[in-house]
Design a protein around this nucleic acid. Sequence first.
DNA 1: AAGGGCGTAAATGTATACAAAAAGCAGGCG
DNA 2: CGCCTGCTTTTTGTATACATTTACGCCCTT
Lengths: 241, 241
Amino acid sequence: MGERLSQHERALRELRAMILQGRFEANARLSEPALAEELGISRTPLRQAMARLVEEGLLERLDTGRCRVASFTIEDIFDAIELRGVVEGTAARLAAERGISAAHAREGQEILASLDRAVSAPGGLDFETYVRLNARFHRLIAEMPGSAIIAREVERATRLPLASPSAFLQGQETVPDFAASLRHAQTQHRAIFEAITGREGTRAEALMREHARLARQNLRHVLKAGPSVAGKVPGLALISN
Amino acid sequence: MGERLSQHERALRELRAMILQGRFEANARLSEPALAEELGISRTPLRQAMARLVEEGLLERLDTGRCRVASFTIEDIFDAIELRGVVEGTAARLAAERGISAAHAREGQEILASLDRAVSAPGGLDFETYVRLNARFHRLIAEMPGSAIIAREVERATRLPLASPSAFLQGQETVPDFAASLRHAQTQHRAIFEAITGREGTRAEALMREHARLARQNLRHVLKAGPSVAGKVPGLALISN
DNA sequence: AAGGGCGTAAATGTATACAAAAAGCAGGCG
DNA sequence: CGCCTGCTTTTTGTATACATTTACGCCCTT
C-alpha cells in the first residue's frame, strides 16, 4: 500500500516524533535551516510542518518568529487529560441522546469482545493489541454522534500534548498493577458503551470523564515510579520541573 | 500603536473575513495564484494563511491538494455551539474548583457592572459596548483556571465555525425580543460569576452550558426571521441547506 | 448528438534567492 | 569585572522559479 505522502507530511511526523521522544531539550529554539538540512528537505515544507505543530501545541512561536519546543508542567498535562475527558464525554452523551446506527453498535460490540480477549489472554496480556483496539474504541465513539465537528474536535483533544489515551500505556508495563488497571479500563469501556446504547446520555458523559480520570491516575503512578519508567513514556521528557 | 503584522497574518484575517462574509459560494474551490494576486501578496504567506484556515475548519483540503470553502449544516453549527458551551463550562468549573485571584474577581465585577449599564442604558441598549464586554467576560473566564491549555482550547472552541458568542448578536438587532434576550444573557453572566466565586464548580459548569443553549436559541430565531436578518450574520451564508 | 481521448492551460508542491530583522560576539568603556 | 556598542552572522519572511500533477476544453469518433 504505497501511500504517497508529501514532504511536509513526512516532516510533520518526523518532527513530532523527534519532539515526543525528547530529542530536543525543553525550550530549545529550533533553526529552520538546520532542521531542513537534517530532514533532507527545503525550508518550505518544513515551515508547513512547524506551523501545524504550533497549532498542536508542541511548538511555541516566539514574538520574533522563532519556534521553541514547548514544555509542560504536570498540571498542564492533567488539564489536557481532563479536557479530553470532557470532549469525549460530550461525544458519548450526544451519541446516547441521538442514538447510534446498527453498524456502530455492531462494531462497538466487536471491539469490546476483542478487548476482553486482549486483557484476559491465557498467555498474559496482549498489550499491543489492547493499545490498538483502545484507540479504535475511542475513535468509534467520536464518530457516533454523526457530526464532523464533534469528530474533529475529539480527535484534536486526543492529540493535546500528552493527552493521548495510549501515551501512558507505554510506561505502564513496569507498573505493579498494570494488568489490573487495563482490566479496570475495559470495564469502563463496557459501561460507557452500555450507557450509550441505553440512551443514558448523562451517565455516558460521566463515565467517560471517569475514564479520563483513570488515565490521570495512571500518569501519577508512572511519575511516582521514577524516571526509569517515566523515560518509557514518549514526550514525558519535555515536562518542565 | 503601530502593531506591525506580517503578510500571512493580514492574509489570514482578510481571507477569514471574506469567507465569513460569504464572498465565496459554498464549496467553491480556491486558486492560490488568483487569491495571491487579489490580496497583493505572493503564494508563500497565502499558503500559510490557508493552512491555518484548514485547521480552523473554514477551509477543507481536497485529496488533490486544492482547498475549498467548507460548508456546514445547521446541525454542525449547533454542535459547535454545544461544544463551546462544554469547553467554556469546563473552564468555569475549574475556576470555581481552584479559586480565582483577587485581580480576576475584581475585573469580573467591573465587566459585569459595565455590562449592566450597557443592557439598561437610558438611551437604549449600547449594543457595540455589549459585544465588546461580552467577549472580555468570556475571555476572562477562560483565563481564570490559570491553565495555558484550557485558555487556548477555549479560545479555539470560540472560533469554531460560527460558534462565536458575538457572531449571532450581529443579526439580533432586528429580532423582536432582542434587548430582552441580552438582558437574559447578562443575568446568566452574573449567575456564572457568582457560582465561580462561590466555589460551586458543578453549578458554574451547568450555567455556562445553559448560556450556550441561549446562543443556540438565538440562532434559531435569526434563522426563523428569514434571509433578510440571517444575511446580517457573518458566515451564515456558507450554510448548506 | 453523446461520449471519450488528447492537448493545452493552470494548479499545487518544492526549492531557491534575497532582504530585513534578530542574535550573537568581540572589543572597548565605565 | 560587568556592561554597553557596533559589527558580523544567522535567521526569519517573502518572492519567485520550476517540475509535476491535475483540471478543463476541444476535437474526433461512433
